[in-house]
């Protein structure tokens, strides 16, 4: 199964690295879309369907947590699986994101962590 994904991070290098690492992990990707902040990500989601979204937290214009909050308010996209990839170290903030339905991956990350998280959040039992 090939996944369509939206990667939201203000760093172009980090977006490229996340996409490269997903491919390295053995996960098959279909359409790969990118956005530089939460507002751009939400705009994209209005008109496009994806299998899961990967979101950074600290971004200009709209941060990742606000993007997730807005997604939860929109019945069309509130159930889209969400993965937060961030340097965030506060257990309190990580727990708050999990309560909003997002899985959390800490930077730096391994291909195995990304693969296992994607498979878990999409309900896929085996990888490609």
């Amino acid at each position: 199964m090939a996944f369509n994904v939206l990667v939201v991070d203000d760093s172009g290098v980090m977006r490229a690295m996340i996409i490269k690492t997903i491919k390295m992990s053995g996960i098959e990707l279909g359409e790969v879309h990118q956005a530089a902040n939460g507002a751009e990500g939400l705009e994209f989601l209005k008109n496009n369907w994806i299998d899961f979204v990967i979101v950074d937290i600290n971004m200009p214009v709209m941060n990742g947590e606000e993007m997730i909050d807005r997604m939860l308010e929109d019945s069309d996209i509130k159930s889209t699986p969400k993965i937060v990839i961030s340097t965030e170290g506060s257990e309190e903030r990580i727990e708050r994101l999990r309560e909003k339905g997002a899985e959390f991956i800490h930077k730096p990350f391994s291909p195995e962590t990304i693969r296992d998280t994607i498979l878990a959040i999409t309900g896929t039992e085996t990888g490609a």
């Binding site: 760093s11 172009g12 290098v13 980090m14 600290n58 961030s86 340097t87 965030e88 170290g89 506060s90 257990e91 309190e92 903030r93 800490h106 930077k107 730096p108």
Partner: peptide, 28 residues
């Protein structure tokens, strides 16, 4: 790209140092 990669590197180092020198529950 060079500046982006370097900014991201120091950002990740900082994000990982802070929980080690403060309480893991601390919010920065």
């Amino acid at each position: 790209q060079r500046c982006d990669a370097f900014r991201e590197t120091i950002n990740v180092i900082c994000g990982n140092v802070l929980p080690e020198i403060a309480d893991k529950k601390a919010v920065f």
